[in-house]
Design a binder for these strands. Structure first.
Lengths: 226, 226
DNA sequence: TGATATAATTTTGTATACATAATACATAGA
DNA sequence: TCTATGTATTATGTATACAAAATTATATCA
């Protein structure tokens, strides 16, 4: 293959996928707020496309649970309740534990190196206190672990669950009092995987989620009071 | 509300959902075979609707992973490889374990009664050797457990993963030599939940999946040889 | 004034139309 | 015979059209 003629496939991304990604991001980041209606013509005008791609994107959002359909009324952004968040975290806790356990068995030495580097990068990012860099480093680190499981389905599910909480990803990252704890947790996870100690890795991963859950739930309670 | 005007909501089910359910079932049962193309006009004619609902249904199937999209070529039924099945089962094993553990904590006495009955029904079904009745009893039993977790997201994910293997659900049910084992496994799961023994329940649930996996993998190898 | 019926508007659900990319086929040339 | 080019066909991607339901506004009557 001639490198010269390699073209970015994303240029051919159908409109429905562009719309899907756009709406998805808007919902996950909170630009589109829970309860807000997704009206087709309105969105179509706003995004400069026809209703067709909008509708197809909504179908995917529907299946993903990010919007709920009301018959003959259309789609609206799904509410995030404390319960639904806890449900997500409960599942994620189990799947993150599974991920690190599988990673203990299957991670290659090379991947371990990458993981170590990601761990260090995270620490550096935290020390420099740039929230968005920290967030990225955090995602990268966890990505390496699920990829190391070699289980694509698991990868897809974990990523999806993580994204469900995208709105709250800054909550525990912003809290500087927790920074040392975060670094320590990541180190513990890395070391247990490096030592191929499933039991310890599982414990560490669960603890990591538990602590995130605490931050997020605390934040939600604050939001409710406000 | 006047009972007289209660109408089965399914009568108002949009065509896209009818099509979605139809295609979904066709894929999961194997009527639509892996690799088969889903051509819009063809399906539209066959189902007596326009392309629009077909396309919207395909979008959902796409997100569910039952079909894969090839740019400017359309959808085709996703291939099921041994690897992808193992991946699904690996995740399901963890989530089934989570389910029974949560059920240990949260199941009500009433639900326990229902679960006991489902267990007995399953045994009766097995003794009568009607495969489709057995399959239904099996689904019912597992449904009760995930419902008892009170975690809707978990419920949705487990159901989805279970359906991914719908094509193979008869494999381990048909094998009469395994019938006693199946009954025993269900009993073990029930008793450990009734005794609220998480550790034991988790072990039983995992074993249950492991045995199913063995049957299915064996079957796949037979299919390959044929 | 207030309640109710009716008309107008908006919005979804579905069908169709049109443009373009992909594919298949056929034909011409080496 | 094989390749290449051009054309016809098919299928997707997107836009638009139309019908029915839901909502809102308006008007009528007690």
């Amino acid at each position: 293959m001639d490198e010269q003629f390699q073209v970015d496939m994303d240029e051919f991304l159908p409109l429905r996928d562009v719309v899907f990604n756009t709406l998805r991001k808007a919902i996950l980041t909170g630009t589109l707020k829970p309860g807000e209606r997704l009206m087709e013509v309105h969105l179509a005008n706003k995004l400069g496309v026809s209703r067709t791609p909008i509708r197809e994107a909504i179908r995917k959002l529907e299946l993903e649970g990010l919007v709920i359909m009301i018959p003959r009324r259309g789609a609206e952004v799904a509410q995030i309740t404390e319960k639904s968040l806890k449900d997500v975290l409960e599942v994620r806790r189990a799947l993150d534990a599974l991920s690190v356990e599988l990673a203990c068995d299957r991670i290659t030495e090379e991947e371990l190196g990458t993981l170590k580097k990601a761990c260090d990068d995270f620490e550096t990012a935290v020390r420099e206190k740039d929230v968005s860099v920290i967030a990225k480093a955090d995602v990268a680190l966890h990505d390496i672990i699920v990829k190391a499981t070699g289980n694509q389905r698991l990868q897809q599910l974990v990523n999806n669950l993580a994204e469900q909480m995208y709105r709250y990803r800054f909550v525990y990252i912003k809290d500087e009092s927790q920074h040392d704890k975060l670094i320590a947790e990541h180190k513990e996870i890395f070391e247990s995987i490096a030592g191929r100690d499933k039991e310890r890795a599982s414990r560490a991963a669960k603890l990591h989620i538990d602590n995130q859950e605490k931050s997020i739930i605390r934040q939600i309670h604050l939001e409710i009071k406000r």
